[in-house]
């Protein structure tokens, strides 16, 4: 699998439908959706609650499968991979940042960050080096041995970002990364994401409700009733 962008396009989504079943009822979340994201882009994905933003993010990250259509990341047909292939692909190419940080409370910051590296063939010393670097990038060199319960929300999210970037993934997928933070701390997190995009060329797709957050992105698209548009819905 290459995951090399073709014509600068890293994420190529075409004709995607996503339908959930609730009892006998079918819920169409995404309908014939098309999207392209270029390598190095910082895309904000906005839309009202229930519009399918997180579902779209899950499809891009290989966490869920489209009912119909094509999901291609750097030429890799994510929609055609088996569960096992998807797991390996995610480990190599995707970094997730969650709204509620999702750190393991029984592990220190550095052990949390190390988790994705356990899936690699790196030695213990090499893993430690990568962890130190990632925590340095997010400005948490001094809290490596801290447990999540002793960290503030902003610090926990920084650990979450360090965990997402420690394997140097192709794409960062952020699901409302500032949704659980106050404005000031949220701004710090957004600045960090911007820096990762600007200085390290990370492609970032960020789901957000917050227009203020979306202004930090290089492009914003809106999802409404299963369809994407470049303009905010009325």
């Amino acid at each position: 699998m290459s995951t090399a962008p073709r014509n600068g396009v890293l994420v190529h989504i075409e004709g995607v439908d996503k339908t959930f079943r609730r009892g006998s009822e079918e819920i169409h979340v995404l309908s014939n959706l098309n999207l392209e994201v270029k390598a190095g882009e910082f895309l904000a994905l906005m839309g009202p609650s229930g519009s399918g933003k997180s579902t779209l993010l899950n499809l891009i990250g290989g966490l869920d499968r489209a009912t119909r259509g094509t999901v291609s990341i750097g030429g890799d047909r994510v929609d055609q991979m088996s569960d096992r292939e998807l797991a390996g692909w995610r480990a190599r190419h995707i970094g997730f940042v969650f709204q509620f940080y999702n750190l393991l409370p029984v592990l220190t910051a550095e052990r949390n960050v190390e988790l994705p590296l356990l899936l690699t063939h790196l030695s213990k010393a090499e893993r430690r080096k990568h962890v130190e670097t990632a925590l340095h990038v997010v400005g948490l060199d001094h809290r490596t041995s801290a447990y999540p319960r002793t960290l503030s929300g902003g610090e926990q999210q920084r650990v979450g970002i360090a965990r997402a970037i420690v394997t140097d993934p192709t794409i960062l997928l952020c699901d409302e990364p500032t949704g659980d933070l106050d404005r000031k701390t949220g701004d710090e997190i957004l600045s960090l994401l911007q820096a990762l995009n600007r200085d390290q060329g990370k492609t970032i797709i960020m789901v957000t409700h917050d227009p203020h957050a979306s202004h930090r992105a290089s492009r914003t698209v809106y999802l409404n009733k299963g369809q994407l548009s470049a303009e905010a819905p009325e």
Partner: peptide
């Protein structure tokens, strides 16, 4: 979350 990171089934 572990699975999202790439931990296989």
């Amino acid at each position: 979350v572990l699975k999202a990171m790439g931990y296989s089934n």
